[in-house]
């Protein structure tokens, strides 16, 4: 259990709770034919959330202190893949499904482990082309097509 993370998390959950309570005040307090309006449920939940986050904050004081011995995390590879994934979402509708998926997989495979370019290229091409063919031509679904066609 990480004391630092749980403290920050409890503050975030507290803010979420307050946000929902405050924003619910804008909704009407009654619906047609009923004294119970759309504000009731989110307001109640917001209050429970605030109480629970205070409880979590209080609990963190009883935690054993964080030990500094942390497992080394591979942030570089994670960051690269995260950026590549966001880039994939950005270009998907622009250059089409097949090209963007091919690029994403190729870069993804190489980020995971360098080398074996031929195998990576073949798998990327088979996956992107195969999914597109099966989904669009066999199952008659819709995916962004090639930009030039």
């Amino acid at each position: 259990m990480s004391r630092v993370f749980d403290r920050y998390a409890s503050v975030v959950f507290l803010l979420i709770g307050i946000f929902f309570i405050v924003e619910s005040r804008a909704f009407s307090t009654a619906a047609y034919g009923s004294g119970v309006g759309p504000d009731l449920f989110p307001t109640c939940l917001g209050i429970i959330m605030v109480l629970l986050s205070i409880r979590l904050f209080y609990e963190t004081f009883k935690y054993p202190p964080d030990n500094d011995k942390k497992a080394k995390l591979d942030w570089k590879r994670f960051g690269t893949l995260l950026i590549v994934a966001i880039g994939y979402a950005l270009i998907l509708e622009w250059i089409g499904y097949v090209l963007s998926t091919f690029l994403f997989l190729l870069i993804g495979f190489q980020t995971m482990e360098r080398g074996k370019w031929l195998k990576s290229t073949v798998i990327s091409a088979l996956f992107s082309g195969g999914v597109y063919y099966a989904y669009v031509h066999v199952l008659q679904g819709t995916l962004p097509a090639f930009p030039l066609l």
């Binding site: 893949l81 994934a85 998907l92 998926t101 994403f104 997989l105 993804g108 495979f109 798998i123 996956f127």
Partner: peptide
């Protein structure tokens, strides 16, 4: 790993 991401996206 990349294929699971691609399947999720699809």
């Amino acid at each position: 790993i990349p294929i699971i991401i691609a399947i999720s996206f699809f």
